[in-house]
Amino acid sequence: MPANPPYVFSAMRAYLTRRLVHSIIIIIGISMVVFIISRITGDPVSIMVDFTTPQEDREIIRKELGLDKPIPVQYLIFLMNAAKGDFGNSIRYEEPALDLVFQRIPATLRLLVFTIGWSLILAIPIGIISALKRNSLFDLMGMAFTFIGQSIPSFWLGIMMIMIVGVRFQLLPISGYGDGDIAHIIMPAITLGAFGMASFARITRSSMLAVLDSDYIQTARAKGLRETFVVIKHALRNALIPIVTILGLQIAGLLGGAVITEQIFAYPGVGWLAVQSIYNRDFPVIQAIVMVVSIGVVATNFLIDIIYTLIDPRIRYDKGK
C-alpha cells in the first residue's frame, strides 16, 4: 500500500474523533430509552409475588427496589449506577444483573462469530462467481438460493432442521450449549445466518458487477494482468466496502434474530435471557441487556468505521455517511 500523506492521517483522526463523540451521545440516548422502556413495561412487583399477595406486602417489596421514588430521580440513580456497572440485582434470580448478562455473552458472541463466518464464507464466493458468470446456470441457481434464504422465516427453518437433522437423522445435538462445542452451534448458526447470507451474496454480486464494469478494472485487464489477480486484488477489495457497511447495519438485526434462534434451540445466550426477562418484567436484567448489547453495536460500528478507513483511504472524512 502506498504511503499516505500525513494530512490524510490527521483528517482520519478528526473523523474518528467525531465518530467517537457520536457514539458516546448515542450511548447516553440508549440509556434513556432503556430507562423509559423499563418504567413503562409495568409493575415488576406483581410478577415477583403470588396472585394473592396483599397490597401492603407489595409496597414493602416496591420500596426495597426503589420503585417509590420520583421518576427523574430513578433515572439519575440508574445512570450513575449503570456507569459503575451496577444495574441492580435480577428480580428473578437475585444475582447482579450485569453478571447474568456477562455469563450469557460468550455464548451469543460465539454464535454471532460462527453465523457471520459461515455466511460470509458461503456468500462471498457465491456472489463473486455469480458476478463473473453473469446469467449462467450457476448465477441463476445461486440467486434462486439466496432468494429462498431471504424469504424463509427463520424460526420455521430452525424447527424444520430440528425435525430433520436432529430427530430424523440424528446428526447433531438438538438444543443447549453442551460444553460450548461446535456441534451445538451449527444449527442455530444456520438458522440465524440464512437471511444474512442471502443478503451478503446478493450484495457481493451486485457490487462485483459494478466494479467489474468500471474503467480501472478494464484498464487492469488491458494491462494484461492475470484475471485471478485482477479479481482478487482489485475487484474484491472494492466490492468489500458495501459488505462491510451492511455487516455493520446487520449486527443489531442479527442480535435481534438471536432472540428467536436462541429460544428455539434453548441456546443459553443473551437473546433468550432477554425474552425471559421481558416476560418476567425483570427490569434490571432488561436494562443491562439492552445497554450492553447496544453498546456492543455502537462499538462494532465504530470499529467498522476504522476498517473503512483502512480498506479505502479515499473515504470522505468531512461528511458523515
Partner: peptide, 28 residues
C-alpha cells in the same frame, strides 16, 4: 476467464471441507 473460476472454486471447496470437519467434532 475459466482460470479465475477454478480458483474461486478451490476456495469454496476448502470452506466446505472445513465446515464438514467442524460438523464432525464434538458430538457429545
Amino acid at each position: 476467464k475459466a482460470a479465475s473460476y477454478r480458483n474461486v472454486r478451490f476456495i469454496m471447496l476448502g470452506a466446505i471441507i472445513l465446515f464438514a470437519m467442524a460438523m464432525g467434532f464434538g458430538v457429545p
